[in-house]
């Protein structure tokens, strides 16, 4: 009897916490998205005006498009960089200790503050920053480049900087599981390095790429801090739009946008989960 109850008791704390702080709040968002509001308060109601306003606005669609642009660019860069880094660690570093040390070096920045990591680009990219000073001194550009900081370029750079680790780790995990005999077999069968890479290694790395993509895509889709800080208010994202509505206390409007964003995120994750069974990959 107790043995049969045990897993339920063990799973209960997790279920309770996620129920109270994830499911219930999401239900609250859905409920409030139908509420009415004025400049002071929000009122229980059942109106669809918030959705009509959000989805009927040209600005909203432009913002979504801009967000998806960030997703596509950051995803492409982190996938290529993440694969190359993971490939180097998995196939070219020979000692297991060295592998661990180098992997740890990649992981440490991920465990420090995102905001500090964003701020740290300022003295590097700014008008009088390290990069501009060097470029001007070397005579490569006549005057400091203005687009380096507080621009969409800076947003993408910071996002890659913040999120690339989420790609490196799962791809590294996938690559480490590849049976080295398969690669020898490919070479014995006459495949050159490139053919081995595209026909053996990359297909076997797909689960890792899929898990990394889930992380990167959802992080960029919901991001508002990086866009706000690195673009200096010159670019928009769905997360930032929601954050701005929150700061104006327009909660029902923010909630309607949040429901739309949530639907988009869950759709994209469901699509990616078709490629990979997370439970098998852990």
């Amino acid at each position: 009897m107790i043995a049969r109850l045990a897993p339920y008791l063990q799973a209960a704390p997790l279920a309770l916490i996620l129920g109270a702080f994830l499911l219930l709040p999401l239900a609250a968002i859905v409920a409030v998205s139908f509420w009415d509001y004025d400049s002071v308060q929000i009122y229980p109601d059942f109106i669809t005006l918030n959705y009509v306003e959000a989805l009927g606005s040209w600005v909203t669609w432009k913002t979504y498009l801009n967000t998806l642009k960030f997703v596509a660019i950051v995803w492409a860069i982190t996938t290529v960089v993440g694969f190359l880094v993971a490939y180097f660690l998995a196939f070219h570093v020979r000692s297991a200790t060295m592998q661990m040390v180098l992997f740890l070096i990649c992981t440490v920045p991920f465990l420090t503050s995102n905001i500090i990591r964003m701020i740290s680009w300022v003295p590097f990219l700014g008008r009088n920053g390290l990069l501009n000073t060097t470029l001007v001194e070397l005579g490569i550009v006549p005057a400091p480049l203005e687009f380096l900081l507080f621009s969409e370029f800076a947003v993408v750079l910071a996002m890659v900087h913040l999120y690339v680790l989420f790609m490196v780790t799962p791809i590294f995990n996938s690559l480490m599981r590849i049976d080295r005999a398969l690669i020898e077999a490919a070479r014995d069968a006459g495949a050159n390095g490139w053919q081995t890479l595209t026909n053996v290694v990359i297909p076997l790395a797909k689960p890792g790429i899929a898990i990394g993509s889930i992380f990167v895509v959802t992080l960029v889709l919901g991001d508002f801090v990086t866009v706000r800080f690195m673009s200096g208010g010159q670019s928009a994202s769905v997360g930032l739009m929601i954050a701005n509505q929150i700061s104006l206390l327009q909660y029902p409007a923010a909630a309607a946008n949040a429901v739309a964003l949530l639907a988009l995120v869950l759709l994209m994750v469901a699509a990616m989960l078709r490629i990979v069974d997370i439970r098998k990959e852990l």
């Binding site: 999401l26 968002i29 959802t218 929150i246």
Partner: peptide, 14 residues
């Protein structure tokens, strides 16, 4: 995978 801003907004609203 649920964006942080949604968790933040949801808990705040709840």
């Amino acid at each position: 995978v649920v964006p942080s801003i949604l968790v933040s907004l949801g808990i705040g609203l709840a």
